[in-house]
Write a protein that binds this DNA or RNA. Structure first.
Lengths: 227, 227
DNA sequence: ACCTGAACACCGTTCAAGT
DNA sequence: ACCTGAACACCGTTCAAGT
């Protein structure tokens, strides 16, 4: 509990955003109230509104802070395809540690955090050699997949935090498939979210590459690689 | 305004769900309050709780109602690939007419509406010849893409309902790309959400097919495929 | 059994008043 | 300028009381 931040120096937007992230991480989305925040910051209710426009603004800033750190850590060096996998996995992992981000990113496509994700993935696609119309299509497909997967995973983690509840959910889903495809149903029952997420990224990358040089005999996967 | 449903017959869960959909469609997510609902249904506050467990339960039931109709309308006949495109487009279109569904589907992967989407897309993938581990990977990739795209689109529609606001958002995004890739930036400025969404579906379909019969010469990815 | 509506325990945001 | 905390206008949910 690193809370109980007694007011040594002045309030600031940065301090408020940090406290928001801390509160969201430790107590969950439903515990983020202006009242709880002022209590932890040892200030009055209205002081928050001197530095922050609205609660939505605060959520967006918190998500932007976390995503910014993640993208900076991962970096974008090396071959573009592995870089895309690394960026996607970084976002996915962040969603695991901060499940509230999942729903936040789905709330507004114009928010800074989403914009950051767009540009970081978009520049890797450019390095892959995807440009022009194809890049916008590929970028939007990738961003939407990553955000969709992250949101579903985060929501699942919120709803079924323990292994038992999670197992129950997967079994219920598997049951609806059982008669039709017992194979898939069995696999569904004990899959690994992270591996499955990465498999999706690979399907996407394969699709981009397949559509770039239309199927057929000749050449291979990627031209850009230097390895 | 088909509101003002005077109480001719008894309250029922179905009637409450219909009123919920109507209220969400005409007045938006923020206008759905238990108080507004009881006013439209001409009943008391607590009567709702005789047929519905909680407001979340109500939202999930409303989304399930809309998605159920959409999937039934689209059907799943014909070749599987076009059927997948049609199902995805149907979901996307529904999201346009009912923007509140976008955020609702991201709230809980276990809810009936999401389950319906999984099984309808999953069965088409099976008809495509994708089975076993590949089917779970492909299904989750496709579902997550569709839900992610729909959520982003719906959120955008909520935030920038008029053409001016929308243009402003796209220009801001394009600006961050301008120096780096003027080509993509220009295209971004006047793209068509629906066409872009379908382009993403095609990327995933191409990826699934590319990974099924490994490119080029011979050597392959996974042994499980039976196609 | 089904419904009513007052009551409960909360919210986010504003704003006169203080320093 | 920055902060305070009471006040405002709401929420979802419960529950004794009615029919």
């Amino acid at each position: 509990m690193a809370f109980m931040t007694r007011r040594t120096d002045a309030l600031s937007r940065a301090r408020i955003v940090e406290a928001t992230i801390e509160l969201l991480d430790t107590a969950g989305e439903s515990a983020l109230t202006v009242r709880a925040l002022t209590a932890h910051l040892a200030t009055g209710r209205g002081a928050i509104y001197h530095h922050v426009a609205t609660k939505d603004d605060l959520l967006a800033a918190a998500a932007d802070g976390v995503i910014g750190r993640v993208l900076a850590e991962v970096g974008g060096d090396g071959d573009p395809a592995p870089a895309i996998r690394a960026l996607a996995l970084g976002i996915f992992t962040a969603m695991d540690a901060h499940p509230w981000i999942g729903s936040q990113l789905s709330r507004d496509p114009g928010q800074p955090a989403v914009r950051q994700i767009w540009t970081s993935l978009g520049s890797q696609l450019a390095r892959l050699g995807v440009t022009g119309p194809a890049r916008v299509d590929a970028g939007s497909a990738l961003v939407n997949y990553v955000l969709g997967a992250a949101a579903q995973h985060a929501a699942g983690a919120r709803r079924a935090p323990d292994a038992a509840a999670r197992q129950e959910y997967l079994q219920a889903l598997a049951a609806t498939w059982a008669g039709e495809d017992p194979d898939a149903a069995a696999l569904l029952r004990d899959h690994d979210d992270r591996a499955q997420f990465l498999a999706g990224v690979d399907i996407f990358l394969a699709g981009v590459s397949a559509l770039r040089k239309p199927a057929g005999v000749s050449a291979l996967r990627k031209p850009a690689g230097s390895g």
